[in-house]
């Protein structure tokens, strides 16, 4: 599989590089063995959140929007991004049909690849995210948030909501939740309030999650399986992911992988992209 030219990469971010890597190397990577686990639950609620975010804190023009789904079942919930689902199905479809789609720009642009499973009855939050093309999982124990509930209230889309604030991973968050929807849930890892979070934003305005749709139907199945996933801890994951993104070119060379175009240009692109993504949801 060949890519047209390096010029193509000039406006692409790290994730774009990863797609190309997935396409080029359908490799299986060894992972630390852990207990095989599979669990499924049927969702009774589907929430769609619109996320407005600014990946580069120095450039307000980098502001963008994406959609994410939160499926809530009895014992399991899943939070994942619409564009990642679209990207997965596009890649699957092309691999299955052996379509050699080489223009990366023809794939959906997905900026958030992670997904989060919450098992509230077991107080577990499991995040599955990528380093390169490889999936890693880490589990955190609830409660993750200490919420300060204020007496302020407002009506959001016909639901009476109350305000609560918390600080988490370097940001102060302001949430609006409703006790009328009986789930201690929210977008991303957010949870632990006596009702569903309809809106949450960081006070500096870099991230904002707003519920755009909610439907109550027994429709989707939430499947959790750890097959092919390596377990790690949050700290190790963050350290390694940062290291990988910063040193993508060197790591690929060390792995004996192909680099598109000349090494110096690639290094520059990778380092530019790294610097532009200076504002993740979780700062520390």
């Amino acid at each position: 599989m060949q890519l047209h030219s390096v010029g193509l990469f000039s406006n692409l971010n790290m994730n774009r590089l990863l797609i190309s890597t997935i396409l080029a190397f359908n490799t299986t990577v060894s992972y630390s063995q852990n207990k095989k686990m599979a669990e499924s639950d049927s969702a009774s609620v589907k929430c769609t959140y619109k996320i407005t975010y600014q990946p580069d804190s120095t450039n307000i023009g980098s502001k963008n929007t994406e959609s994410a789904f939160l499926l809530i079942g009895k014992t399991l919930s899943l939070y994942q991004y619409e564009n990642k689902i679209k990207l997965d199905s596009a890649i699957d479809n092309n691999i299955r049909n052996n379509i050699q789609e080489t223009k990366i720009s023809n794939y959906p642009k997905a900026n958030f690849w992670y997904r989060i499973y919450k098992k509230s009855s077991e107080n577990q939050v499991t995040t599955i995210d990528y380093i390169g093309t490889k999936e890693y999982a880490y589990t955190e124990t609830m409660p993750l948030f200490v919420w300060n509930i204020s007496s302020e209230s407002k009506n959001i889309n016909g639901y009476n909501c109350r305000r609560a604030t918390t600080s988490y991973a370097g940001r102060v968050w302001e949430a609006w939740y409703t006790t009328e929807i009986p789930f201690s849930e929210g977008p991303h890892k957010f949870s632990g309030l006596p009702g569903l979070i309809l809106e949450i934003k960081d006070v500096k305005g870099y991230y904002e999650f707003k519920m755009s749709d909610i439907t109550f139907k027994q429709n989707s199945l939430i499947n959790f399986s750890n097959a092919g996933i390596s377990y790690t801890t949050r700290n190790d994951f963050r350290k390694n992911k940062d290291n990988y993104e910063k040193n993508y070119v060197s790591i690929r060379i060390a792995q004996g992988g192909a680099i598109y175009g000349d090494e110096k240009t690639m290094r520059k692109i990778v380092s530019d992209n790294y610097n532009k993504r200076n504002n993740p949801i979780e700062l520390k």
């Binding site: 809530i72 079942g73 009895k74 014992t75 509230s120 009855s121 077991e122 509930i149 006790t179 009986p182 789930f183 201690s184 632990g192 309030l193 006596p194 009702g195």
Partner: peptide, 24 residues
Amino acid sequence: LPGALVELQSPARPEATAVTTTDR
């Protein structure tokens, strides 16, 4: 009844609340 939200509050401290979800 799994997946239900259980909330405990105190009349003495209306600001405080404790929340959990029922298991299977």
